[in-house]
Nucleic acid binder design. Structure first.
Lengths: 207, 207
DNA sequence: TTAAAAATGGCTGATTTCAGGGATATCGTA
DNA sequence: TACGATATCCCTGAAATCAGCCATTTTTAA
């Protein structure tokens, strides 16, 4: 009997997942968590074989949860559930230690397939995610860059409509510094304007 | 027996909703649709008493579906399901003809409550949505403005990192016109820079 | 059908951003 | 401890944005 832990903050989705798994012979629901913190605790205490992990939880970022788990536990299979169909997000989640990626608009069977694949040591992507990943991106342009704490702070303020000078004032730093961060962000996201940075960052849930 | 039509593009959520309703004595699932177009058709053919409508469908905007329905049909109760907890979005959905608003991270009972309230002629908001709406907003600042097709087009291009001149070239219009739209957008969103516009528009799912 | 809203085009000038070069200090970790 | 990543600071000039106005035509709604 394969023990599955469910982590999702939407009770209705949880309902659907439980239902889905209950129809399978060899799966049992080991536990249900609505937050990342609960989830992390449950993984150590319940020691499940598989975790179905919603990537967008209220408290902890899905990527961080994967990283946390992988620090100590390399056995558990993590299947990421998400609404995000952006290529960089998928890539990031997978490289953070997930064994599968299933979009929430997939049919239930894909989740089962993903679990079985992961248990066999394979990485399964749902059809839609596979399609996205297999698209040849012109020069691998849009990777999700690693963004520092300070940079996030600055993006948040800029996105609210503050100018460089206003951001500088708010953070008690020189406008030149804000300019530098701005430049770095534009470079990291590989775009040419700050508006493009803000759009991508918002899409990726960075701010 | 109250006939309920389900419209949601996530099979797992659908599963959960069906499960939830099946536990209720007096509700029956009249049909399930994964797209807005199917949904609109089903509403006329199946004539349900209640529609559980996911606001974020792949093809048609939830707000537009509500408007469409309300053109001809004033009887059917529409309960909006959504992940959006932004005040302007909620307000917009309700004023487009929805009889209730339930966030997807609500417990299933809230959906039942919302349906029953709507059938009695009341408008029900889930706890979290109610909290958001009752917050006294400083001067009712952040209403979701009505955005035209052209404006959306321009926002989309600007958000991709194009400059005013490039947008003008792409749309075969004068840069001055783009400037005008830009100005209107900044005014409509009541902010002072285009980056702020892009962030809000992305959040509200406008682009 | 009439009025309002949207889309188009225009001008000027002050302010801001962006690209391009730098440089130094701090912090955590290997 | 030494390295790498982060955060801080600085300059200049070209290019773009934003605020402030206005006007015409076409759609859409009342």
């Amino acid at each position: 009997m394969i023990k599955v832990l469910l982590i999702d903050d939407h009770p209705i989705v949880m309902e659907g997942l439980k239902n889905l798994l209950s129809r399978q012979e060899d799966f049992s629901v080991a536990g249900c968590c609505a937050t990342g913190a609960e989830g992390l605790k449950a993984i150590t205490t319940l020691n499940p074989d598989v975790v179905l992990l919603d990537i967008n939880l209220p408290d902890i970022k899905g990527i961080d949860i994967c990283r946390q788990v992988r620090k100590h536990n390399t056995d558990v299979c993590i299947i990421a559930l998400s609404v995000h169909n952006e290529r960089p997000v998928i890539k990031n989640v997978l490289s953070s230690g997930a064994n599968g990626y299933v979009l929430k608009n997939s049919v239930g069977e894909e989740i089962i397939t993903a679990i079985n694949a992961a248990l066999k040591g394979n990485t399964y992507l749902c059809r839609a995610a596979r399609d996205i990943m297999s698209q040849i991106q012109e020069g691998e342009l849009t990777e999700m860059p690693r963004i520092t704490r300070r940079e996030k702070e600055i993006m948040a303020l800029i996105s609210k409509g503050l100018t460089t000078a206003q951001v500088a004032e708010q953070l008690f730093i020189s406008p030149h510094t804000v300019e530098s961060h701005r430049k770095n962000l534009i470079e990291k996201f590989d775009v040419s304007t700050m508006t493009a940075v803000i759009k991508l960052a918002t899409q990726y849930g960075l701010i």
